[in-house]
Structure formats: C-alpha cells, structure tokens
Design a protein around this nucleic acid. Structure first.
Length: 307
DNA sequence: AACACTCGCAACCGCTCGTTT
DNA sequence: GAAACGAGCGGTTGCGAGTGT
C-alpha cells in the first residue's frame, strides 16, 4: 500500500542521490525539523515526507555514529534484547548515536548468527535444546511487562505462571561511586550475581523455565528474600529487587502510592501498598531524585509483616 | 573473465498510536 | 465519535559489493 502522502504527487523511490541528500540537509538547516509532510515541498524533493524522515534519521542526521559496532555495543544489544526482545527503538536508546535500523540490521546480519552458532535461541536467549523447550512450555511461564524505566536506569518485568507471579525491578546501570549520577549502562551479563540473595534475573528466569512447577513456586515463594537490598563492590553499584507474590491475589489490585526521596543522597525510598498497608519495598540509588515509580503498573501485593 | 552466490545495509511497506479536525 | 493526518516502529525487500568457483 502506498502511503497517503506519497499519492499526492509523483515521488522518487530507491537510493538517494548526493544531490537529494544535499537538498534535504539544506531544507532542514533552513526550516528545522517541523512537519515531515511539508519537507518535499520546502526542499523541492520528489520524495514523500516519510522517505525524507527516514533518510534524515537513519543517515543524514549529524549526530550519527557510523561504522562497525564495537564489542561493547554488541554485548549491550544482546543483553538488552534478552530483556526487551525485538524492540529495536528501545534497544537503540542504549547505544548513543546509533539508530534502530542500524541495530536491527546488525542483529539480523551478525548477532543472530553468532548466537545460533553458540547454540542459543536468538529469540529467547535460551539453549537450543528440545528437552528444555518442552519443559519451558509445560511450565507455561510468561514474562510480561518488560520495560526499562526511567531513562533506562532499570528494567522491570513480571514472571507469571498459571499459578503465581513475581515482579522484578533491576537496576541495570552502574555508577563509578555512588551516589554520583549513573554514567554508563552495564549489561546484565556483566553483573556478578553470585551472592545467594542477589540472583541475576536473567539466570533466574532460565532456572525457572527448566524446573518443575513445585520447584518453581518454591524458588519464587520461599528462598528469595523479599526485601530491599543493594550492594556495592569496588567498581559499581547494583541493586536488584525481587517483589514477592501471593498466588491467590490477582494482579492489578494494588498500586504504588508514594515515593519518598532523600535528595542529598539521591536515594529513593519507595513504598508499595500491600495488604498490611504501606510497605517499604526498596531503596535504590538513582541519578534523578524525581524518579517516578508508575512503572509498577502490573501492581504488587504483599502479605502482612513480610518486610 | 564470467557467472553464481552470499551478505550487509538502505529503503520501503504495513501497521499502530496519538493528535487534530 | 469518526475520519484524516503525522509520526514512529518492526518486518521485509532489493540492490550493490564482495567472494567463491
């Protein structure tokens, strides 16, 4: 189907010539980025506005980084993809000056093949094992509400089965020495989640997908401490919070109510309403004390006295 | 040299979503 | 509320360059 903006006049398609690029750049320099549908008229280009937009965003924008992806960028793409899936625009936000199209192409042409060669399913990042796949489907685990908030400082997702569910919020950025602001994104795989009480969410998901329902619920409901925590080592600060669940209590029943911020420490104390009233559920270091916790849209619920 | 094949990437397509009329 | 419009996103396609035979 031809886009409606392309039907109004004869439009060129295919590769852009240097002359067309020049016209587009000059148009944007003169008129700024306003309405893309008016760009063809303003620039004298016989292209549709949509095509102009794409050309600018993916190629002509002055702040673009061109050239091969670095190993670090590759690791970042893999790690964020593991959490978000094919959300190229979201993934690209973790890679300054890279476009979603670039990331998508790199994934399809390079990373995907590498993962398959390593015996990993590029969609799930799990081992390509028929047995494990069977177990996964029998457990009927769904990972929902995967989101990065705010400005990519942490990721939030829900693990849900037919009988239980669990919400995660994990800080995935590092800062060299808290409480200064976060400086760099750190992929989950680089974390040392060897402490018993700080499991790596990605590893936990993998573990849950391959165990029996009973084992899984025990894992979710029993050994994982439902508490606030964060830890530091010499290089960076990581906080991972696991919010507990109660199988009988439906989701979307409770909402986050208040946020308290200790500004000077850039420390956030946040509270979630549980069955026993407000419960403090976490403390974390963030770059912005105006941190908004409306991410807990799937909601949580907690038994009395759990904290 | 000529052809076939592969690969990477730019661009397009179809769709959704939010806003305006 | 419906239609039109604009912007953005993810999937797909097609072209050109590189490589192998």
């Amino acid at each position: 189907m031809v886009h409606h903006c392309c039907t109004k006049q004869k439009v060129r398609r295919g590769l852009w010539s240097p002359e067309e690029d020049d016209k587009l750049v000059k148009c944007i320099q003169t008129h700024g980025l306003a309405c893309w549908s008016s760009v063809p008229k303003l620039s004298g280009l016989q292209r549709c506005g949509k095509s102009c937009r794409l050309r600018w965003i993916n190629y002509l924008r002055p702040d673009l980084k061109k050239g091969s992806f670095t190993e670090e960028e590759e690791r970042t793409i893999i790690d964020v993809h593991r959490i978000l899936g094919n959300k190229w625009a979201q993934i690209a936000k973790h890679l300054p000056r890279r476009t979603d199209n670039e990331v998508k192409n790199f994934w399809n042409s390079c990373i995907k093949k590498k993962l398959i060669a390593q015996g990993l399913d590029p969609e799930t990042h799990n081992l390509l094992s028929p047995n494990k796949n069977k177990l996964k489907s029998s457990n009927n685990i769904a990972i929902k509400n995967k989101k990065f908030y705010p400005e990519d400082t942490h990721e939030v997702f829900t693990i849900e089965t037919s009988r239980t569910s669990m919400n995660f919020a994990s800080i995935v950025k590092m800062k060299e020495s808290p409480p200064t602001h976060f400086q760099e994104f750190v992929p989950l795989s680089q974390f040392e989640h060897n402490q018993e009480n700080h499991p790596n969410p990605a590893m936990l998901i993998d573990e849950l997908q391959h165990c029996s329902m009973t084992e899984m619920e025990n894992t979710i409901l029993d050994p994982i401490p439902i508490s606030k925590f964060g830890y530091m080592d010499d290089d960076f600060f990581v906080s991972t919070s696991h919010f507990g669940t109660i199988p009988e209590v439906p989701l979307k029943q409770q909402q986050v109510q208040t946020i308290e911020s200790t500004h000077e420490q850039q420390q956030i104390m946040y509270r979630v309403q549980g069955t026993g009233g407000f419960q403090e559920t976490g403390t974390t270091y963030l770059e912005d004390s105006n941190f908004n916790l409306d991410f807990v849209e799937s909601s949580l619920d907690f038994p009395h006295g759990i904290f």
